[in-house]
Amino acid sequence: MSKAPAVYILASRNKQVLYVGVTSQLVTRIWQHKNDIVSGFSQKYQVHNLVHYEQFDTIAVAIEREKQLKKWRRRWKDQLITDNNPQWLDLYDSLL
């Protein structure tokens, strides 16, 4: 898991704001978001809960998926999350 390319979706506590990202080190990257080490959107809007992630064999495929998800309508992203994580639980601890 430590070096597996992944696309992830973070949600704010009230589920009003989503953030889609890509990384090759999911645990480290989510920790950075949760601790506001990553300045920018996720820090400004307090988007810290990992509600969805997908792992891939290559970073190129992960980047393509990230681009696809970023173009999706909000309701499609909501449905993707709900299909895999109905209660929108923070999945970070399950990665450890």
Score class of each variant (00 low, 15 high):
36 D>Q: 12
16 Q>L: 13
51 V>F: 07
27 V>I: 15
52 H>S: 12
83 D>N: 15
89 L>Y: 10
94 S>W: 09
81 I>W: 09
76 W>T: 13
35 N>R: 12
20 V>W: 01
64 E>I: 06
8 Y>V: 02
45 Y>V: 06
92 Y>S: 02
96 L>T: 08
86 P>T: 05
55 Q>S: 10
39 S>A: 08
11 A>S: 15
4 A>F: 11
33 H>K: 01
84 N>M: 07
41 F>A: 12
53 Y>H: 15
78 D>R: 09
31 W>T: 04
33 H>T: 04
48 H>C: 05
26 L>C: 04
94 S>T: 15
15 K>M: 12
83 D>P: 04
6 A>F: 05
44 K>N: 07
68 Q>I: 10
16 Q>D: 12
73 R>C: 07
88 W>C: 02
73 R>F: 15
26 L>H: 01
29 R>E: 09
1 M>R: 11
6 A>V: 02
92 Y>F: 15
92 Y>T: 05
38 V>R: 09
31 W>P: 03
20 V>M: 06
51 V>P: 00
28 T>L: 11
54 E>H: 07
9 I>H: 02
25 Q>I: 09
48 H>M: 03
42 S>D: 01
59 I>Y: 14
21 G>C: 06
17 V>P: 01
67 K>E: 10
40 G>M: 06
51 V>Y: 02
85 N>S: 05
32 Q>C: 08
65 R>L: 12
4 A>E: 12
43 Q>C: 05
52 H>W: 15
1 M>A: 12
59 I>F: 09
47 V>F: 01
84 N>G: 08
70 K>W: 01
30 I>T: 05
34 K>T: 04
26 L>P: 01
81 I>A: 01
88 W>H: 10
44 K>Q: 14
28 T>I: 11
75 R>L: 10
64 E>R: 09
80 L>Y: 03
9 I>R: 02
24 S>M: 08
40 G>T: 06
49 N>E: 15
13 R>Q: 13
11 A>W: 00
96 L>C: 08
31 W>A: 12
33 H>W: 07
32 Q>P: 00
93 D>I: 10
6 A>G: 11
44 K>T: 13
22 V>S: 00
63 I>V: 09
7 V>Y: 02
